[in-house]
Amino acid sequence: MNEAFRLIGTPRFGGILVVSDHASNRVPDDIALGIDPALLDLHIAVDIGVGAIGELMAQRTGIAAFQGNISRLVCDLNREPHAPGVIPIASDGHAIPGNALDEAAHAARLARFHDPYHDALAALLVACPPSLILSLHSFTPELESHPDQRRPWQVGVLYNEDDRAARIAIPLLEAEGLVVGDQQPYSGKLLNYTMNRHAEADGRPYLGIEIRQDQIGDAGGQAVWAERLTRIANRVALEIGGNDPSCN
């Protein structure tokens, strides 16, 4: 396990790789964000539930999980390296004073976390290409800064230009009796950096999933969604092109 990422399970050629940029709320001991520690348990610091779902899915043969190993408040791995929010100075109305960095410190933070995360993911995809990348995130039922804007979708499917997997997955999720957002609660055309870089740029099929956090805030919900996403991801992978269970 690296400081910036961790790999769970054994990647397989033609298998499924679950990628979760925001799976951890860890803040290294030598970084002081200057915030109430209670904020680290909220959505501004971590995609609640996705780390556990990735671990459960990676127990299945043919599935591995690649996860960010630091809080998105330390470095947001799903943002362009030059985006203002890659090292956020505020999130959902909360100031992050420890992230008011000078240019050298900002560059050092990116070199420490952002670069190795994306370098490792790129290398993994070349060494053992999956048949499908499952990009897994979660979202809060409402933002503190906009409590009037409810988010009724239990799950959202996000994509940029490549909607091959989305078109297969949306009806499968709806068949589970779920309220499914197509490019909701926000558009994958706006926030899709990791998949733009590692999937869209090379034509790799991917499925971008956002689960509402009240669905997966406990072990029971996480188990339900891990089983559901395993079934659906395998179905999507097969429909897109099949898979090969071996890895050389």
Rank of each mutant, 00 (worst) to 15 (best):
Asn78Gln: 13
Gln149Met: 10
Ile133Leu: 14
Asn160Met: 01
Pro152Glu: 08
Asp102Tyr: 03
Gln154Met: 07
Phe113Thr: 05
Val126Glu: 13
Gly93Glu: 10
Asp102Asn: 15
Arg79Val: 06
Ala95Thr: 13
Ala100Lys: 12
Asp163Ser: 10
Ala120Tyr: 02
His94Glu: 14
Leu124Ser: 05
Ala166Met: 10
Ala100Trp: 00
Ala104Gly: 12
Glu142Phe: 14
Pro97His: 06
Pro116Thr: 02
Phe113Ile: 05
Ile96Pro: 08
Leu132Gln: 08
Asp148Phe: 05
Glu103Ala: 15
Ala83Ser: 15
Leu134Thr: 02
Pro141His: 03
Ala165Ile: 04
Ala111Trp: 02
Ser91Gly: 07
Pro147Gln: 07
Phe113Val: 09
Leu124Trp: 02
Arg151Leu: 04
Cys128Glu: 13
Leu101Phe: 06
Glu80Ser: 11
Arg151Glu: 03
Asn78Leu: 14
Leu101Val: 12
Arg112Tyr: 05
Arg109Gly: 00
Leu132Phe: 04
Glu144Gly: 14
Pro147Ser: 07
Pro97Gln: 05
Ser91Lys: 10
Gln154Lys: 05
Glu144Thr: 00
Asp148Asn: 14
Leu124Arg: 08
Glu142Thr: 11
Ser135Lys: 12
Gly93Ile: 11
Ala122Asp: 11
Glu103Pro: 01
Pro141Arg: 10
Ala104Val: 15
Ala122Cys: 04
Ile87His: 05
His146Gln: 15
His114Trp: 15
His137Phe: 09
Asn160Ile: 04
His106Ile: 06
Leu101Pro: 09
His146Glu: 15
Leu121Gly: 01
Glu80Arg: 08
Glu80Leu: 11
Asp119Leu: 05
Gly156Lys: 03
Arg164Asp: 12
Asn160Val: 03
Phe113Lys: 09
Val157Tyr: 03
Gly98Asn: 11
Asn99Pro: 09
His114Glu: 05
Leu110Ala: 06
Asn78Thr: 14
Glu80Pro: 09
Ala100Leu: 06
Arg79Leu: 03
Ile89Lys: 11
Arg151Trp: 01
Trp153Val: 02
Ala83Asp: 15
Gln154Asp: 12
Pro152Phe: 00
Leu143Asn: 06
Leu125Lys: 01
Ala165Arg: 01
Pro152Met: 03
Leu136Gln: 09
Arg164Glu: 07
Pro81Phe: 00
Arg150Asp: 13
